[in-house]
Design a protein around this nucleic acid. Structure first.
Lengths: 206, 206, 206, 206
DNA sequence: CATGAATGAGTATTCATTCAT
DNA sequence: AATGAATGAATACTCATTCAT
């Protein structure tokens, strides 16, 4: 009687395993090195079986995109800053979260980068990925706007511009593969200095 | 007398045409959509002819990387800020150059992004592309350092951190496909505000 | 119950069919005329299917070499002269076997010749083929040695030298495409005359 | 005035150089590894230039065959046994010539073997090569017949059969890559023993 | 004579996908 | 659900040959 749910579970697990294998392959070889057969090998199943679960390669790519979204959302919700935190604390929280992910789960960001690029030529991917990108932007923008409103950030700060700077710093450290924590901290501090309202001391929020 | 140069020119032109076709194809479909036959078609030659000039696909990718480097260097040297300019003028010059390239020759930056990503899995590309990336960083860092030295930038500014913010802003506006000039100007102004020394008025250098 | 064997049989049959097609193609056109596509056509399968069973052309050549070895060994063991035969009877048995093969299955010797030649440039083939060649030599040498020992062959005969003469006669009749049985018989008789001990009558063993 | 002959000479030299390069390539890689471009490279000319001298690959193969014939004939005529020699001395002379060629110019026999095999599928080659083969047979047969006639060889010897044994011994030692001079000498002695008329001592002719 | 460039027809191999079981 | 076998359509690359100069 409990068989159907079990099977569904099994199918779902298979899909998860397939998505995971696809991801690690994308990290290793990029999209141009992604082969369905190799995914099947890593999962330990036959290619025909893989195609039973995921009909086409496009569907596979979409599956990976969706799995990225799920992980991203889960992580964002899990690491959501409490309502009781100040805007600058919440912003620092965002930075911490980003760099922690890069340290502990670098695969996630690498696949994300591949997906963002692929989104340029692949509408299916774009439909899944671009909203994540915008969600991220909006969330940070909201924090900045809150900081401007409560006076903890410079009152004349333009939230979208500041958001671009914030996200830009995250992307740039990633592009330059900067892992040294001190260098990262210094850059983040620098960014805070230019955002916080004048009389505030550096890292007063830390 | 001019025969040998002419012939050389001819071969060189073919290579240039091949690199150009490859680039536009990369822009349209990414590396995963790059097909030698399609490049040959676009150049208007037989595949065998393409292979006569460039023996393998790897060599083709390297050719594209090299052509990127040449264009990049040519552009950088051409648009080199005069020695008589102030650091803040030179920095603005860098921003202007970047955004003008994005407007007038978006292909260049898109291919550059693809190359940077490919560099992660392809050592040949990495050897050509990574030095460009570092060259760019260093050039901006030098401007920032000069600004700090002459007092036009905040004296306590950390040049590498500021450079990451500057490059980050360029990359972020690119990632979010922000084309609106006003939005860009506002973001650039915001960045300048956080870099210039306190009593200075905004856009004093414009 | 019989399913796994059946399946194995099927794959094995395919391989056998591929090897057979490759052999006849080698006979017709030599190694330089061997094309995977043509083999697939003769077997009645798609090239991709051929590559499913045999991954590369080198593997195909090795398969043919192995199939030669199997046939050779099977034939040698099947036509093994009884222990009760005299050395000269056993030697004549070898000759008969050789010429019968040439008449009834000329393909086998032609492919063998191609393989021996290929072995000079192809180590994989050499590893399979040269042992067969040596096996053949050794088997005949043993017969000659036995004949010398029991006095039926000239006592001062050098077995390796006689073996070279015996095999040489087989190869030479092949090289000169001599099919006329009388001519062959006369040559074989001549060889026997030079091997048998003096007082013996010709064909006393026939 | 002497230019035309000079040029003709030059063309002829080129052809010789091309044939030589083709031969060494055939030795190294067999017919299946023969590439016009590689021949041109070895000669130090352009492929177009090679095709100027030899229009097609078939013509090239024929050129090689012809060059083989020329060398073969030149060598045979040069090493022609004097009329004053006895049949057994002349036969030994043939053996010596063969084994000396194998030692000093092994390329010649290897290419010859390739050609003989190719003759099976290539009529042009067959027309050039088979007469050489037959010329060789006939020459040895004549020596044997002379030996039978003058009583130095066994009177009941069948010349064609003996010729097959003689040539067979040469081919067999070649097929088994036997280079050891002692082994060769022993085999040749053995063959002589079976041919010479009974009361004759071994190597009486040496 | 010589050559750089070009090309048509191949040539082995790959890959996503399908199908019978 | 799963799999071994099969396949059409590519895919990078090769090779003998041609042609303009």
């Amino acid at each position: 009687m409990t068989e159907p749910p079990q099977k569904y579970q099994a199918t779902d697990d298979r899909k998860r395993a397939i998505a995971a294998a696809a991801r690690s392959l994308i990290v290793e070889k990029g999209f141009e090195g992604l082969r369905t057969r190799e995914i099947a090998d890593r999962v330990g199943i036959n290619i025909a079986t893989l195609h039973y679960h995921i009909p086409t390669k496009d569907a596979l790519v979409e599956l990976v995109a969706q799995s990225m979204k799920e992980d991203f959302m889960a992580q964002r919700l899990q690491h959501q800053p409490g309502e009781d935190l100040s805007p600058s604390q919440r912003l620092r929280f965002e930075f911490d979260g980003h760099f922690r992910t890069r340290r502990e789960n670098p695969e996630l960001l690498l696949v994300m980068e591949e997906m963002s690029r692929r989104a340029r030529h692949d509408d299916t991917v774009a439909r899944v990925i671009l909203p994540m990108r915008d969600f991220w932007f909006e969330r940070i923008r909201a924090v900045v706007a809150a900081g401007c409103a409560d006076g903890s950030f410079r009152s004349d700060l333009d939230p979208p511009s500041a958001t671009l700077m914030i996200i830009g710093l995250m992307i740039a450290t990633s592009a330059y593969r900067i892992e040294d924590r001190e260098v990262i901290d210094r850059a983040v501090d620098e960014l805070f200095r230019s955002i916080l309202s004048a009389p505030q001391e550096r890292r007063a929020d830390a």
